[in-house]
């Protein structure tokens, strides 16, 4: 398994992802500066969290024009796996690789805390090892994580299993008190039609070791293996 981790100016969860991929999962990694365009040999490209370009203009807006993004679009169109976490999710939306938008949290404040998310579709590489209805404990840390998409688009996404994660209570119930940012339908993560491009606001890399309080993120990373073995 070979994973590319993209570093935009202002990315700050890049080393955290490298640690989990390399030291916890034992996969090899390549750090990709945002000006690179060669993705040959990679199975998965991760756009990590952070504040690319300081969130100036709009979170993810400037990074979506980085040279590497054209290469990533091409990579994805050929079936390559692309994961955007937090700011990476924002970038994928700005680049038009996923549907919807992320607005400021409804409390208009940054929020860092543990959440529970329910897996609502296993039709993506990230959820390929999880089961539908599985509740995972994953932390969030963001200022602009309130997901929005039009009603019509939402219906299509629901019908085709593109809504991957929703914020829920620890026992899996949808309840506004557990929606940390005001996302529509408490959506925490989505995929494209093919399931090979995924974006989510929670940080699976912060929940991949027992020492840090949760290993639930590993279920997601291991989905990559199931997806690839199914495809081949």
């Amino acid at each position: 398994m070979k994973v590319g981790v993209v570093v935009f100016p202002g990315s700050n969860c890049d080393l955290d992802v490298v640690h989990v991929v390399q030291d916890v999962l034992g996969w090899s990694t390549r750090i990709l500066w945002h000006t690179e365009t060669n993705l040959v040999g990679l199975d998965l490209v991760v756009l990590p969290g952070g504040f690319s370009y300081g969130d100036y203009l709009r979170p993810g807006a400037l990074a979506s024009y980085s040279p590497i993004m054209a290469a990533i679009k091409d990579f994805a169109s050929k079936g390559g796996l692309v994961l955007g976490i937090c700011n990476g999710f924002q970038i994928l939306l700005e680049a038009g690789m996923l549907q919807g938008a992320l607005m400021q949290n409804r409390q208009i404040r940054f929020v860092c805390k543990p959440t529970w998310v329910r897996v609502d579709s296993t039709r993506s590489f990230l959820t390929a090892s999880a089961y539908k209805g599985q509740v995972l404990s994953l932390p969030i840390a963001h200022h602009s994580g309130s997901y929005y998409v039009t009603k019509e688009a939402l219906k299509g996404m629901n019908d085709s299993g593109r809504i991957l994660f929703r914020y829920v209570s620890p026992d899996g119930a949808q309840d506004d008190a557990f929606n940390p940012n005001g996302s529509i339908e408490a959506i925490a993560g989505v995929s494209n039609e093919e399931g090979n491009v995924v974006g989510l606001m929670p940080h699976p890399e912060r929940a991949a070791e027992r020492l840090l309080g949760s290993e639930d993120g590993l279920v997601l990373f291991r989905g990559v293996l199931s997806w690839i073995s199914q495809a081949s």
Binding site: N12, L15, H19, G49, F110, C112, P139, A141, L211
Partner: peptide, 14 residues
């Protein structure tokens, strides 16, 4: 206060 601060980035916070 501390919910407004990212206190986990760097994955060192035990």
């Amino acid at each position: 206060i501390y919910r407004q601060y990212d206190h986990e980035v760097g994955i060192r916070t035990l």
